[in-house]
Structures are given as structure tokens and as C-alpha cells.
Simulated assay, not measured.
Amino acid sequence: MTSENENYTEILHWLKGQAKELGFSDVKISDLDLTQEVPYFQEWLRKGHHGQMHYMSRHANLRANPNDLLPGVVRSICFRMDYLPRVKDDNNVNHLTEDFRSKELLQLKDASQAIVSVYARGRDYHKVLRKNLLVIAKLLEEKIADLKYRVLVDSAPVLEVALATKSGLGWRGKHTLNLNRQAGSMYFLGEIFVDIPLPVDEPVSNHCGSCQDCIDLCPTKAILAPFQIDANRCISYLTIEHPGSIPLELRSLMGNHVYGCDDCQLVCHWNKFAKNSTLADFDVRNQLDCSSLEEVFGWKKEDFDSKMQGSAIYRIGYERWMRNVSVALGNYLRSEQISVSQKSKITELLKNQYGCISELVDEHIAWALNP
């Protein structure tokens, strides 16, 4: 006679096979006891390090109590999905990137380039993960009668890095992201909360050692100390979540980032093991891996809406996009790389957009024009 535990183990083995077919790289199980994590989260909120992400504090109690999200929940099935884009050779054949970091770091040094975080160059990951997790959840529901579940992809207040760390998907790096010895940190996390006691996995040990390159090389010094980030200074927060004027003292430190920032990941030595996605969803769209600031600043609203439809970037809207590019162009004008003729061209481009979009964009254009 098969015991319940043996049955759950068999289901878990089947589940991992299904997940792999849907583009997930790893699956681990965690319980929902977050008592060790909650005090750190509450202290982070108390210090105001969440910036204007008011939803973080508004639903803080739900992050501490997963049972309030799904009554009866006892496990989180934690999923990892690698997102480095596939690369096509001259024969249009997909292959894996040997070391994406070298290319990214070179491009970062070119002040004329518009730098978009790698994860956002393809389709919106929320849609991809949610769709595939729902497929898995429905299949699981067919196997387990009266299963209660909830699929989570940034769609509910959950301490997902804490759950991923607790499950053994990786350890928490000093930049606060989940890190894996075989895959670095270039992956998405997703969860399915369930009310069945699947066997839990053990956490893995931390392998950052004495390295603190991510802290030392953060352009805005947003990583205050190991495992401590002030979102108010983080380029990802400033270009994506922050709704208003970018603080003056941070603009010159943002370089050519126009959406997100991967700097702390690019310098992380574990990311030499980062994996390419198996899904076409994360293939680069609209040349977001090699577009110039001049090119993207020339987009009209209808261009932005058309090109960014289905992208995570679409969520920030045209105004914030142009705000971000204005700052990057200001930094390009201030760089030693720009020629006299290009400086004149960029200056004219900025002047032509002044008064065309909004007061917020005008403020950043004015800053760009007045080094």
C-alpha cells in the first residue's frame, strides 16, 4: 500500500517533469514559516527604504502571514525560470551565450547606448510565468482532489526571495537577490501556494564569501551593506517604480540606464554560470539590446505603445520612459565620448522635445541641457 508521503514524492517528481517542459529550470518546496524574515522586512519598511512603493507597507501583514492569502496553505512550490535570451547565429540557429556579461559590460561603457535590463527585452515575464504556472496548477488539480492553490507572480504580497531561499533554490546574495551556484541570479521566481504537505527541501549554504563586488560597484550606492538595499537610490527603482522627478543628486550617477539596472548582477562572479532561457518569449524584441539613446528618444507615444505592447516596459508608460532617456542623454552630453557634432545633434534633439510631452519630462530635459 502506497503511503501518503510516497504519493506526494511521486507527484513531486511528475511535477518537476511538467515544469521543465514549460520552461522552468528548477522546482523546490518550502514551508510557510517566515518568522525569521519578517523582522528584517518590517525594519526595512520602518526606515523608508521601500521609497514610494506604498503597496509594500500597505500589505505588510499579508507578507508575514501567507495563510491570509490562501486559508489552509502549508507549502509554497517555488519555481525558477532562467531568462537570458537565446542567441541566433548567422544560420538563424539558437545557441547559448558563453558569457553574456562581457557584452553587457562593454555596452554599458558606451554612453550613447540605451541600456535596458536584460529581463525586460522580451515578453513581459508576468504573463509568461503566470500562464505556465496556471497550466501546472491545473494539471496538479487533476491529480489531487479538492486541491486549494494560488498562483503567484508578483501578483500578491509575498516575500518570494525569502521563500526561494528557504526552499533551497539558492541563497540570498549580498545584493538581496536569490543566487544559485549553477545559474547565478538571472532568473525569475514564481510560486504556487498549496494546501497539501509536500515534502520540503533544505536551504543551501551561502557562497558569497568575502566578496562584495556588488556593493562596491553599485553606481548609486543603493546597497548600503550586505542584504540591505535602499530602493530610493536604486536605479531599477528610479527608472521603473518611482513616479516623479528623479533626485538631482542621483541623475549623473544613472549613466545610460533607461529601464532597470543589472550592474550588481553583471559583476557577480556566479553569473558566469547564468543560463539562457529555453523559451522564445524572452528573445530580444525591437533591438532593445543594441538601441541608441538618440533612436529611442525619437519615439513618439504611438511608437512606444506599439513597440512596448506585451513588454514589462509598457507598464511605466511613455512619460517615464522619456524622463529616463532624457537623464541618460544628459549624461551622454556630459561624457568625454561625445563628439562636437554629436553633441550639437543631441542638444537639438532635446530642445525639439521640450514642451511636447509633460512638465515632468521638460524638467529632465532642462537638466540634460544644462550640465
Rank of each mutant, 00 (worst) to 15 (best):
D31W: 15
F79K: 02
K143N: 11
D305L: 05
M254P: 06
W299M: 02
D230S: 00
V116W: 05
N178D: 02
N92D: 15
D216N: 15
P247W: 08
S291F: 04
A60Y: 00
D283Q: 11
S102D: 15
F100W: 15
E294A: 02
L96P: 08
K138G: 11
S30P: 11
L70R: 00
V93W: 03
L238Y: 05
L248A: 14
V73S: 12
R63Y: 00
Q42F: 14
A366K: 13
T347R: 13
V200C: 10
C208T: 07
T278E: 13
A19E: 10
E294K: 03
P85R: 01
N352C: 09
P66K: 02
L108D: 09
I365V: 09
I136S: 12
H59D: 12
H95G: 06
K103I: 14
H13F: 14
V200K: 15
Y119P: 07
N92V: 05
L147K: 10
L108R: 15
R75F: 03
Q212D: 10
D230N: 04
I196M: 06
V327R: 06
V151N: 09
E249W: 06
G330S: 06
V135C: 09
P39C: 10
A111Y: 09
P71K: 11
L224D: 02
D110S: 12
F297Y: 01
R315S: 04
A145S: 13
I192V: 11
N324I: 00
L349N: 02
H364C: 04
A162F: 00
S30M: 13
W171I: 04
L177T: 13
E363M: 14
K307V: 01
V151S: 09
L12M: 13
H13Q: 13
F304R: 01
D99G: 05
Y83F: 11
E363C: 10
T220P: 05
G184R: 05
R121V: 07
K127V: 11
T278N: 11
F273I: 05
N7I: 14
P247Y: 07
P219A: 08
I246L: 10
K138M: 12
I235G: 07
M186L: 14
G310W: 03
V327L: 04
V325K: 01
V200Q: 13
D33Q: 12
R150K: 13
G330E: 04
V128K: 11
I229Q: 01
K174R: 09
K272P: 02
S3F: 08
T9F: 13
T165L: 01
S277C: 07
D195L: 06
Y55S: 04
L279S: 07
F188L: 10
P197E: 07
S326K: 02
Y125N: 06
Q265G: 03
E363R: 15
R150H: 11
V258N: 00
D26W: 15
